[in-house]
Write a protein that binds this DNA or RNA. Sequence first.
DNA 1: CCATTAAGGACTATATGTATCTATAATAGC
DNA 2: GCTATTATAGATACATATAGTCCTTAATGG
Lengths: 133, 133
Amino acid sequence: MKYSQATDYALHAMLNLVASAPDKPVGVQQLAEKLGVSPTYLSKLMTKLVKAGLIVSTPGANGGYRLRKAQDEISFLHVIQAIEGTASLLECSLDHGDECLIQQVVRDAERQMEQLLASKKLSDVAKRLPATD
Amino acid sequence: MKYSQATDYALHAMLNLVASAPDKPVGVQQLAEKLGVSPTYLSKLMTKLVKAGLIVSTPGANGGYRLRKAQDEISFLHVIQAIEGTASLLECSLDHGDECLIQQVVRDAERQMEQLLASKKLSDVAKRLPATD
DNA sequence: CCATTAAGGACTATATGTATCTATAATAGC
DNA sequence: GCTATTATAGATACATATAGTCCTTAATGG
Ligand code: SF4
Ligand code: SF4
């Protein structure tokens, strides 16, 4: 089980936005170049982030993307779920109801992980981002 | 991000083994029938569990699978990792070294989840398994 | 020796993820 | 208004992973 590569791109793109001036939008071209990804592909991911309410986009000349909220209000979980969705890890076909302990265990485990991911904000890592990124 | 269906099968198969008599091996035929899966496919999954050291198999007449360890020593994490592997959720191509906070956050989150999954044993859910399973 | 059962290789089908191309819409600046 | 710029979106192509089947081989009990 792995996060899709798209999640990796999204996280790095978001951190690049954090590192940029907050009022100057960053275009997908620049982002794609820094990440070494195809611009058109990255564009679709950015659109997902827009729809998730994490960033805002402005088309036209000097357009691009900028954060919608303060960087200390955007958590890892926000970014990850914007790309990966919020489905549970275990999707059993039969639904034996609430008494199913199997699902409870997995849900609990998910909650544990999500709790930590939600507590970590972009600002927590923005301070010390590897230089070449 | 979701566990593969194979993980779902493996968990249910293991719990069926727990529910069976510990000395009588259970064949893949019976298991497959209970789970509603193809026997040949399930067979491959069972082999993975064998290689992970969770169960032992005996071929030949009256053969099948049985638990290798006590049911309170087998955790959810054991079963899940036997199928899904142990790779990290985030596999970035560039490796910027230990100071990368992005990876640290994700690793921490993984550890949180794994810690809970490791603490939950098969015996914890075997007591109250939905009837139709 | 024979029936039974697991293991494993080869193969197919399907789904998902990754990526490209093209067209459309919106915005800023002239 | 016109034009350049930039995001959005659909269609399409490609790669990879998952899911599943078929057949052969090996091991065990009777
Ligand atoms: S026992 Fe739980 S996980 Fe299994 S099929 Fe029933 S509801 Fe789903
Ligand atoms: S910053 Fe961290 S996650 Fe990103 S490419 Fe570098 S090592 Fe990988």
